[in-house]
């Protein structure tokens, strides 16, 4: 379990990073928190010829609110996100999902950008970002482009990132007034990869009617459950409503089988979690209305 040889690069600025990535192309991988890439390299499943270390690129490590939008630098540690007061008050879903990522020690090293760009099925942050309708800023040597979180992941560990490109920043809009969110997950151990995970965001008007809903499931790629979202729109929250929505959420979805759970299990678990997450989110939305 020792990595194959590689050349190590230690840039200090974003422009140095993009220049390196531009020059090295497909032979390079960026090193963020290393919580996934380093084990893959130790197993020699990943054998990059060049490793570009982002850990000393200070301009990628920030967390701020601009124009009501949360801006997260790719190198922001997951633990920083989890403990941020701004995040707790404005984007509680992010805090909730981050608590499911591995263990504290892992979150101390793991980064927001690393988790999103790795695009591992069952990862929590991608599901949350899709639910919150985040936008990802991708930076190459020639400039930047902005991609919706929903369009970022193409499939298992594959994204729209081109060789030479880097996920630089995540922008998360503030949920509308009267919103509540929830994340539910089952995993075989605390902190383990999710067998199933569901994030829900529900917005209620003053009369308690659902005016917006987003529901995203873990899977080979984060999967938005549009049929379920449509089913609850304009309705009042109820057990029966969410049961029906959850049923629609998993109709026709694809899940993988592995030694820990079959695809069928994952579908069933997603259905149960979708119902619970919707109910939970609606309850929180109602509570926020009551307080507001």
């Amino acid at each position: 379990m020792k990595p194959a040889g590689f050349e190590y690069h230690d840039p200090r600025t974003l422009s140095e990073v993009t220049a390196l990535l531009g020059r090295l192309g497909e032979d390079a991988r960026v090193l963020a928190g290393g919580q996934s890439l380093v084990p893959l390299m130790n197993f020699r499943l990943a054998r990059p010829a060049h490793l570009v270390d982002l850990n000393r690129v200070a301009e990628l490590d920030f967390l701020s609110v601009e124009g009501g939008e949360l801006r997260i630098g790719a190198m922001t540690r997951q633990r920083v996100l989890e403990r941020s007061e701004v995040v707790v008050s404005g984007w509680p879903l992010l805090r909730e999902v981050t608590g499911f990522i591995g263990h504290v020690q892992i979150r101390n090293r793991g980064t927001v950008g690393g988790s999103l760009a790795h695009a591992f099925p069952s990862a929590e942050l991608p599901v949350a970002m899709v639910t919150l309708d985040a936008a990802f800023v991708l930076q190459g040597e020639g400039g930047e482009r902005v991609v919706a979180a929903e369009d970022f992941v193409l499939g298992t560990m594959t994204t729209v990132l081109e060789p030479g490109e880097l996920l630089r920043e995540v922008r998360v809009p503030a949920p509308a007034a009267g919103s509540g969110a929830s994340f539910r997950e089952v995993s075989r151990r605390y902190g383990d990869f999710a067998l199933a995970g569901v994030a829900a965001l529900v917005t209620l008007d003053r009369d308690g009617v659902v005016t917006a809903a987003r529901l995203t499931l873990t899977g080979p790629a984060p999967t938005r459950a549009r049929a379920a979202e449509a089913a609850v729109l304009g309705e009042r929250p109820s057990e029966a409503l969410f049961r029906e929505a959850a049923r629609r959420a998993v109709a026709g979805i694809e899940q993988d089988s592995d030694m820990h759970a079959t695809a069928e299990y994952r579908v069933r678990a997603c259905e149960a979690l979708a119902r619970r997450a919707l109910a939970d989110a609606a309850e929180r939305a109602a509570a926020s209305r009551a307080v507001g």
């Binding site: 084990p39 197993f43 605390y190 030694m259």
Partner: peptide
């Protein structure tokens, strides 16, 4: 063998 690392061979941790 399919469980050849601690990713797949699930040892209980203090949390479990």
């Amino acid at each position: 063998p399919q469980a050849t690392s601690f990713m797949d061979y699930l040892m209980p941790t203090a949390m479990d």
